[in-house]
Write a protein that binds this DNA or RNA. Sequence first.
DNA 1: TAATGTGAACGATTTCACAGCT
DNA 2: AGCTGTGAAATCGTTCACATTA
Lengths: 240, 240
Amino acid sequence: MSQQRTGPTDGPDFPDLPEATVARLPEYLRALHHLAEEGHDTVSSEGLAAAAGVNSAKLRKDLSHLGRTGTRGVGYDVTLLIDQIEQVLGLTHRRAVALVGVGNLGHALAGYAGFGSRGFRIAALFDADLGRVGEQINGLVVRHIDDLPAVVVEESISIAVIATPALAAQHVCDRLVAAGVTSVLNFAPCVLSVPEGVDVRKVDLAIELQILSFHEHRKSALTALPAVQKAKRGEAEVAS
Amino acid sequence: MSQQRTGPTDGPDFPDLPEATVARLPEYLRALHHLAEEGHDTVSSEGLAAAAGVNSAKLRKDLSHLGRTGTRGVGYDVTLLIDQIEQVLGLTHRRAVALVGVGNLGHALAGYAGFGSRGFRIAALFDADLGRVGEQINGLVVRHIDDLPAVVVEESISIAVIATPALAAQHVCDRLVAAGVTSVLNFAPCVLSVPEGVDVRKVDLAIELQILSFHEHRKSALTALPAVQKAKRGEAEVAS
DNA sequence: TAATGTGAACGATTTCACAGCT
DNA sequence: AGCTGTGAAATCGTTCACATTA
């Protein structure tokens, strides 16, 4: 819809994807890798949608933004689609990631195998605590945060993970941005302000539980008073 | 279990909030606690919106769903609003949470202080690996997953966190649901299927990075070809 | 006067239903 | 015949702008 096509010479490599679609492509990618391991060569929109936990119309609309990806009457070629999604997500090379804060959570993230297998390489660990600097985790030495600028350049790092306490996060973020980082994944429970052109995503573990708490609260309120209005909701509620 | 009834006429207690609003209330709550610690008694929609990283119209609309919460010409009473949000989110009592899978990530989650300070109590740890059963983490003994049914009842657990490998997650989830758990926070990179009435939220760390990777990719494509169409985006891009 | 609460406009996303390929 | 790709409809969410109220 909102697309002015810039000519017959294609919007080559770069469709302007809706944000909601971007957020789902990684899920499709994971499902596709799984299907590939199981030996599937092709998959229908129904099949892939089921594996990714969405409905098939949504999946088809999402994939349609990537250009022609399937074959009518047949479905999608699994390996081809993997390639196309990895292309669009910029996963054709393994991206170097810096992790700041090797406390409780940071330590676990540093050892999380899922990053390595899905396109990323933890290239450096940082902490402000001199007691932690020098420690070795998973084959990487923890460096002092003052080394940030040098290492970011050295390792061509553009993505960083913040796993510090909330009070330190904004300061750390400022230093990351100053060093050239342009994407931040923030685990600290606070709002980060960043200049234009820098992307921030946030993961707040307690917030996830609080959202579930709301639903628990609602469910127990409904079962406690089964009298009025239950005609409303009918399907399995899966929020993501 | 766990209901706090205000009487038979408690209809007004339970607004039917939009899901997007529910997802933001915890962020407001966090910001409010922070403001309270700084000694603020009241806060305007502008002020709270800034602290929570949203715009003020959205905040007012969100809060309007809770009923009259502010005072025109003045703003919102900080402690009163905290109470109202905690009420709606069902945080008036501390909820017991089970955590399954005390590997790398699960271990860190078991020690995460943010759960304790924001309405939750990790009440039990489980693992399938007998080598881990008996280990003590943060004052809790890891139990074998066969003990699930007993412990869930004993501790009145309705929320569980899954931090197992992907291959085990569905099986663990089935056992949790069978034991009576009705909300699941899933850290395993896979889709869980659950019966109606059970809520699932998912946190996939690699997916978060992949979404950032997309934006990195797009940014570098845009700076590489500064020629065409840049009139589009204007503000700081904060995706959550 | 200052700031909330809210109808109405707008925009984004999801879903439907089917035309069009293979 | 079967399944993708896609307009159009429906739904959901955001923003605007201002009437309303303390």
